[in-house]
Nucleic acid binder design. Sequence first.
DNA 1: GGGATATTCA
DNA 2: TGAATATCCC
Lengths: 258, 258
Amino acid sequence: MFEARLLQASLLKKILESIKDLVESANFDCSPEGISLQAMDGTHVTLINLVLRNEGFDTYNCDRSLSLGLSLVSLSKILKCAGNDDTLTIKARDNESDTVTFVFESPKNDRVSDFEIKLIDIKNEQYSIRKSDYSAVIKMPSAELQRICRDLSIIGEIVTISANKEGVKFSVSGDSGSGNITIKPTSDSDVPAEQATVIESKEPVVLNFALKFLSNFTKATPLSPMVTLSMSEGIPVVVEYKIEDLGFLGFFLAPKIE
Amino acid sequence: MFEARLLQASLLKKILESIKDLVESANFDCSPEGISLQAMDGTHVTLINLVLRNEGFDTYNCDRSLSLGLSLVSLSKILKCAGNDDTLTIKARDNESDTVTFVFESPKNDRVSDFEIKLIDIKNEQYSIRKSDYSAVIKMPSAELQRICRDLSIIGEIVTISANKEGVKFSVSGDSGSGNITIKPTSDSDVPAEQATVIESKEPVVLNFALKFLSNFTKATPLSPMVTLSMSEGIPVVVEYKIEDLGFLGFFLAPKIE
DNA sequence: GGGATATTCA
DNA sequence: TGAATATCCC
């Protein structure tokens, strides 16, 4: 028996909005510690790494680990049926059951909806997610990254991110011209630390990425006011959104080699 | 000579939006008491029952009864030409005339439009609308019914409505899974009576309906903040929207027999 | 009040 | 199928 109750169904809604266009289906790995999901897109360019720790749930009961394979499109459809302030309870029997139940309850408890989704058998690939000692780690407002990706997508398809101690430059060029957006670490001491842009740079890095994917990642913006980009030469960038109290949603994107 | 003046042309606009996809043409039966319309869809699954009482009109003159047969699609096209705050005057000569005139006037009276539509000869079938003593009568926010129909349409095509004193359950199942939405009577005394969900249940009922039609009925949502569902085993459900001061728009839908 | 999304019209 | 609009959410 697995049962996890989340006060804000909208959290999972936002998570699905930001991953459903990247991956068709994935296993939600439920263990006593929490729920996690790792999945790669069809072209194996991006990897999604979602971690939701048990402490972040209103209630969390998981006797033994189980993998819930779900169509992310179906799940996102069902989550659209949740009211904006509904709570969510996820219920699954055990490994033999072939469905999982999502229960939404309105704040006043005058409306309860439950949806059953069929489970899909997905072979559980283990992706090695190694903690690297990144050359550059940038913490910045997530809305700003979203805006940058949106703006640069108008110009071209590939963005060059150059980071050093002084700042981070996002460069793009296309048929109609080219553009650069540079952000600098926050110096204004009026800005609270949680909202400050911070660059930790061990050595300068320059990497190219497909804007299409980066833009897609920024759909997770509603999850967190801040985002971190971790980069090293030759390995995937990590774009990570903390999910308050619960965990985080990370996206890995392999750089384009010219 | 028939002449009826309505302060809000938008009311008739909303009425037509919610019925024009169900019935091609219908008779507007004008009598000294008001205007009424009964019509069935082509497949004889739904019946529309519209009542607009004379008191609700700004002015209302009708010497003797007459039936105005109109193409609802044409009428709805013409009503689209009305400004949002325009008043509407409906004018018809008598039974010999073959047109009816719709006059729109802007609030400041600086713009007057008039449209003439050809009358159609439609044989006036009398549908027996018997007031039944329903097993369950549910009054609920119309937006909530609309939301429920929209959400459940994502999952499947047939909804099972089960009503008893405790609540009303809308159930649906489809390829990807199944879902139930249950609403309970309002217990919160802070909610004004006009906005409260109320269930009058004589005996439990369980009925199946095609969601397609129910969803269509909910296009009438802009007419009223509340809607009532009246149900008894084996007879059509009535979905009724009160139209303030004027009357009501009711939809009858025969249940699906399994 | 601005952005995003859902619905409607062309 | 795309664009404009209306509604909802932030």
